[in-house]
Design a binder for these strands. Structure first.
Length: 917
RNA sequence: GGGCCUAUAGCUCAGUUGGCUAGAGCGCACGCCUGAUAAGCGUGAGGUCGUUAGUUCAAUUCUAACUAGGCCCA
């Protein structure tokens, strides 16, 4: 029985725990970062460095963060951290969007009826408190993900100076002539006499009249009619469930690509869409024959006679015309419907709305003046019947919008609203031109936002709400002229800076007028103040004004915006428009979008589906690093999937990386880089080979950071750890590390590689795995070392020898063949571990033969076998199980033994032992 | 219904301007090791490249339609 030689080996040794215990360790590291002021230290270290301007899009201050937030903010954090390691100064100032309807609704829900009794200031205070509460909650949730930034000083759209900036920006838009007041249909409750937002609408079953109405073609234009109609006096038939809107009818919409048919009955000719003809005939009981067909586009701008007023109704084309119900000829009243309104704008129609806030027709409306709209339904139907315009009248039950407060049915009613004109000063065209100058990542983002800006209607800015920044305009009571006095606006903005946007509601805003101000138009002295507030999209849309350019570290324009792809319609869009108005330039140079988070099956995450994974549960179960690793694994430009299964996969990948790091640290035990580092040119060739491979990895990873292609980094780092290091290099050098003399050149050479790789690799992964990088950094350099997060990325650091790389790539191929042969032998039960084998390689190819001959001495090490013989011949690889005794120290089966004390050891071990004593 | 986008092994990704038997890692299966041990190593099985048509000598790659999914409109 030979003695135990374990003590004579240099086995890996470290306190770096194998078990990450992220759920408890991460919060400790975060606390440490805060305590030592890590972010301040980094900013200090980059004091004179070039600034990378990055602007945070503000999440809405409502509710807990969800996975989408986590994805977004972790991506941003990887950007921030990687740019810092590229040597830039990056000031990340997080923001929150604080105003708006969802918070108002939440406050109303929270406080119940009590809220209705509150005056506007008390109500706004409740809203403010609510937003603050959720900012605090979200801030903690974000910090838990390891996000680096100025969390003590975020920007908040409800901050007084921010509110003042919103007002100032709006005033600029107004004074530059972009802002006008126009009509727009909104959901309206005639009982509460108020506009309702979509979120306040409840859909319930409702019984409505259903009528088919004929609109005769204008006979005077017969020449322009489709051929099929020319011989007849034809009528287009519309279908509606709101007969009371017929007095406001100004148009009939057709689908340009639908086929329409002329149906001849015994006394008239009706036009309906071919696809809906059958339903039409069945519903109305009309019978007739098809006399001809034509496309909807032939009806563009033809005129029809209104069934009971002496006026025309124009034919227009619209994509929204459906072939699922109705007749394919859609009654259009621009004052009473969203789509009707859009079409009305497009065709230059009046936004006619002869209905007041109580739901009564205005007094001067012929035939129905003063009547309630719902009660007027039957009278309209009767009138249609009298005019022989009614084909059929019945009742339908369908889902219809109701007021969530009083539960009464709503109507669509045009109301006066403030708009930003897309045409004023060529805003639309200039914006489109600006889009071309921005780099969109991925590239299709350009098409998406371009199409939206190209086709969007004017921006409706006003909301009949309380929690927001008021539209600070006054109109003359006498002549209606809007006050454009600079001094007045300055006073308003100044007051807001001091006391917040609420000042507008405190007293009569006329008080902000200069003394003795009179209307320049009529000399009037009495003014009325607007009570509406601004769309919250305007708030966040001017963040570039309120946040950028006020601090040298956060300049305007921003280098980068990074948000979900829904923001092409949202923040990117509104920011662009306001910036074009205010500065005639986009506020960003490049824009990155990421996709949405879906479940493991690629389905949307929803409470009702039970597939929601809250970030807090991920950090609780796995830790932020695992979530961050997931973010870096997926190609975020497309939608991304997350499931517990996927997290598990990432937890294992994390363990692989962590164990590799741990092993490197463990084997560097006792290694003093100052004294022990072997210069590259004196290293063993295999060690240099690994260094070359790692050397190639560095620029690849740094470039991927620069390109924001994080999933490439994930793959490259993980593969380097598993393939190059763990299964190849580390496995091979075990013998050298453990069994060679502690300070032998063989061992120090390998340790030098481990050291270089570890230090540089930690920096490369620090943006993705900041906690782990920091933890390992501490084991290398001690707890008080300069933080890894203020380091810079490594650069390629050795001159590669391509011949070495080529030779070793080839040797690795041979190694694979040898492994297959060993496995076969193992399956046969001839050997267990590979050290029990001798390998005989026979090759014919001259080049390969000389290569193997050249390396014959170290091949046992490379293949992790005891002996290797290289022959010229045809048999590729023969595995010979070795029966002989193994060296009790290194477990190799040597060709010959050497006496060392009481035992026989292999020559190498004998020498090492002899030097020990 | 419209605009934009996506679809390659169970999962996450590669696949240069169309051209060898479509790759990797993970997972899985089987095995080895017990001196990285709640670790490490080896081997292997998995793909009609969403479907269908078209262009071409040749299509995962180009075109169209369809299907499924996502975002934004309506």
């Amino acid at each position: 029985m030979s003695k135990d030689y374990k003590d004579s080996l240099c086995l890996p040794k470290t306190q770096f725990p194998m078990k990450a215990n992220l759920t408890t360790r991460e919060p400790q590291i975060i606390e440490k970062w805060e305590k030592e002021g890590l972010y301040g230290k980094i900013m200090e270290a980059r004091k004179d460095a070039p600034v990378f301007a990055f602007h945070d899009g503000p999440p809405y201050a409502n509710g807990h963060i969800h996975l989408g937030h986590a994805l977004n903010k972790i991506l941003k954090d990887i950007v921030v951290r990687s740019r810092i390691l590229m040597g830039n100064k990056v000031y990340y100032r997080p923001g929150w969007d604080c105003h708006g309807l969802p918070i108002e609704l939440a406050v109303e829900k929270e406080h119940g009826k009590k809220v209705h009794g509150l005056d506007i200031h008390e109500f706004r205070n409740f809203c403010k408190g609510y937003a603050e509460k959720y900012i605090d909650i979200q801030r903690e949730e974000f910090k838990r993900l390891g996000l680096l930034g100025d969390w003590e000083n975020p920007y908040r759209t409800m901050e007084f100076d921010y509110e003042a900036e919103i007002a100032r920006s709006f005033i600029e838009c107004f004074l530059k002539g972009y802002v006008y007041k126009g009509l727009k249909p909104v959901q309206w409750c005639i009982r509460c006499q108020t506009a309702l937002a979509e979120a306040e609408v409840e859909y319930e079953d409702h019984a409505s009249p259903s009528v088919y109405v004929a609109f005769p073609f204008e006979v005077e234009e017969r020449a322009k009619w489709p051929e099929a109609l020319k011989g007849f006096d034809a009528s287009a038939v519309i279908w509606t469930t709101t007969p009371w809107t017929l007095p406001a009818n100004l148009a009939i919409a057709f689908h340009p690509d639908f086929t329409y048919v002329a149906i001849k009955t015994k006394d008239r000719v009706y036009v309906v869409a071919e696809e809906l003809m059958e339903i039409f005939l069945r519903e109305t009981g009309v019978s007739g024959t098809v006399e001809g067909k034509f496309k909807g586009k032939e009806l563009d701008r033809l005129y029809f006679r209104h069934p009971f007023y002496d006026r025309k109704s124009v034919g227009l084309l619209a994509q929204y015309v459906t072939s699922e119900q109705g007749t394919g000829c859609v009654h259009t009243a621009p004052g009473h419907g969203q789509e009707d309104f859009i079409s009305g704008l497009k065709y230059g129609l009046e936004i006619l709305c002869p209905v007041d806030g109580k739901g009564n027709f205005v007094e001067d409306l012929p035939l129905f003046g003063g009547q309630n709209v719902f009660e007027a339904n039957q009278k309209v139907i009767q009138l249609l019947k009298d005019k022989h315009a009614l084909l059929k009248s019945s009742t339908v039950h369908h889902s219809y919008p109701h007021c969530w407060r009083c539960k009464n049915p709503l109507i669509f009613r045009a109301t006066k609203q403030w708009f930003i004109s897309l045409e004023h000063d060529n805003l639309r065209r200039r914006s489109l031109e600006a889009i071309e100058k921005v780099q969109w990542i991925p590239a299709w983002g350009r098409n998406r936002i371009y199409g939206m800006i190209e086709n969007r209607p004017d921006w409706c800015l006003s909301r009949q709400r309380k929690w927001g920044v008021p539209i600070t305009l006054l109109s003359c009571d006498k002549c209606g002229e809007w006050v454009k006095d600079r001094k007045f606006f300055d006073n308003v903005v100044k007051a807001m800076e001091e006391r917040g946007a609420g000042v507008w509601f405190e007293a009569d805003p006329s008080g902000f007028l200069p003394e003795n101000f009179a209307c320049p138009k009529c000399g009037g002295k009495k003014f009325n103040a607007e009570q509406d507030i601004l769309d919250v999209w305007f708030d966040s849309g001017v963040s570039h004004k309120a946040v950028l350019g006020k601090n040298p570290d956060l300049p305007w324009p921003s280098e980068l915006y990074l948000e979900g792809s829904d923001q092409h319609r949202g923040w990117f869009h509104t920011s662009l428009l306001t910036s074009m108005i205010l500065d005639d330039k986009a506020p960003y140079k490049s824009v990155i979008t990421h996709g949405f988070t879906l479940d493991g099956q690629g389905r949307k995450m929803a409470k009702s589906m039970g597939n929601v994974i809250p970030p807090s549960e991920v950090t609780k179960k796995y830790g932020a690093e695992v979530l961050r690793l997931w973010v870096s694994m997926v190609d975020y430009r497309d939608d991304v999937r997350l499931s517990w299964d996927l997290l598990n996969q990432n937890a294992e990948a994390y363990m692989k990386i962590r164990n590799t790091i741990r092993y490197l640290i463990g084997n560097l035990n006792g290694f003093d880089p100052e004294k022990d580092k072997v210069p590259v040119e004196k290293m063993l060739e295999m060690d240099r080979y690994i260094l070359y491979l790692f050397n190639r990895l560095i620029p690849k990873v740094v470039k991927a950071y620069d390109d924001y292609a994080f999933h490439i980094i994930n793959r490259e780092l993980l593969q380097f750890c598993t393939v190059t290091l763990s299964s190849f290099y580390l496995d091979i050098i075990k013998d050298r590390l453990y069994c060679s003399g502690e300070k032998s050149v063989e061992r120090l050479s390998a340790q030098s590689v481990l050291y270089l790789v570890l230090v540089k690799m930690l920096k490369l992964m620090a943006p993705i795995l900041p906690f782990t990088a920091e933890e390992a950094w501490g084991y290398l350099y001690g707890e008080n070392a300069a933080p890894i997060h203020a380091e810079v990325f490594p650069e390629a650091f050795v001159e590669e020898d391509p011949a070495v790389i080529e030779r070793w790539d080839k040797l690795r191929e041979v190694r694979e063949t040898v492994n297959k042969a060993l496995e076969t032998s193992r399956q046969k039960g001839e050997i267990g571990k590979s050290l029990e084998a001798k390998v005989v390689i026979s090759v014919k190819d001259g080049g390969a033969l000389s290569l193997l001959k050249q390396y014959e001495k170290i091949l046992p090490e490379v293949f992790i076998v005891s002996q290797v013989e290289v022959l010229e011949g045809e048999d590729p690889v023969v595995v010979v199980p070795l029966e002989g005794a193994k060296c009790p120290r290194c477990w190799n089966v040597p060709v010959g033994f050497v006496k060392a004390g009481e035992d026989e050891l292999c020559p190498r071990c004998a020498e090492v032992i002899s030097k020990l004593s």
